[in-house]
């Protein structure tokens, strides 16, 4: 593996579920230390693509390499990758506190070490959730849960962070907070960020690369260069009114 090896390399990936082609022969690279956003309409296969990259779906056609390792051997590099699924629903009776969640990531048989405890506090401070340590997850708002999960995902100091619609179900101000936080963390830690997003403004502002997906890969490149109203209309099947497109 050389320094120039992409963080994620997808070649001719086809995903068929229940005899339906969800992803149709797509290839792309996710460069290291940058933010790549996946956009597309509902049912375009965005979440399936992410799950397929992580090897969470049955074997598919094509190859996926993460940090130079075939995703079939995902467990070897799992410690370098963190994934936050789309809006985790916490049952109101599930007795898990924020600290309890962090405990589950500790390799200690019981509890966690003082170093791990310190790291948890640092990360919760990073996402402004220090006061929530003893709160049950089901008492937190969607935005607060996402921030806790973001802190949780950084425990093992990953090099790749994959997020499936991190701001889904969160109000506008909460969305801004999440994306600003992500950008800050990405820049500070030189993380490779791969995220699914519906917010085109956010993609324009934060992403170094955008992947337009609707079963097939319709575009890949710098958002300002590849996104056009024509492409978005083709992809979403209707004009995307609020899209502010400014060519650099």
């Amino acid at each position: 593996m050389t320094v120039t090896t992409p963080a994620i390399s997808v070649k001719h990936l086809t995903v068929i579920l229940d005899d339906q082609t969800i992803i149709d022969d797509i290839s792309f690279d996710v460069p290291r230390g940058q933010t790549t956003a996946i956009i597309g309409p509902n049912g375009a296969g965005k979440s399936v693509l992410v799950k397929s990259i992580l090897g969470l779906l049955p074997s598919q056609h094509g190859t996926v390499q993460i940090l130079g390792t075939d995703h079939k051997h995902y467990r070897k590099i799992a410690n370098q990758v963190s994934y936050i699924p789309q809006s985790i629903e916490v049952d109101k009776n599930f007795p898990l506190t924020v600290r309890g969640l962090f405990l589950l990531k500790s390799p200690q048989r019981f509890g966690m070490s003082s170093v791990e405890e310190q790291r948890m506090n640092t990360l919760l401070k990073l996402v402004s959730m220090t006061k929530a340590t003893t709160d049950r997850l089901n008492t937190l708002s969607g935005g607060q849960i996402q921030r806790v999960l973001l802190a949780y995902s950084l425990v093992n100091k990953p090099t790749i962070l994959i997020l499936d619609e991190p701001a889904a179900g969160i109000d506008i101000s909460g969305q801004e907070t999440i994306y600003a936080l992500l950008q800050r963390i990405q820049e500070q830690r030189k993380l490779t960020l791969l995220l699914i997003s519906h917010e085109l403004d956010v993609v324009m502002r934060y992403a170094n690369q955008v992947l337009c997906l609707n079963k097939k890969l319709l575009c890949a490149g710098l958002p300002r260069e590849v996104l056009s109203n024509e492409l978005l209309t083709e992809m979403y099947g209707q004009p995307v009114g609020h899209f502010k497109h400014n060519h650099a």
Binding site: P85, K105, S106
Partner: peptide, 20 residues
């Protein structure tokens, strides 16, 4: 030896899978 993993699977299977 595996209680924490079982609890994580109980909490969220996708999260557990993504952790290998």
């Amino acid at each position: 030896t595996s209680g924490k993993r079982l609890l994580l699977i109980t909490f969220n299977e996708a999260l557990a899978r993504s952790q290998g």
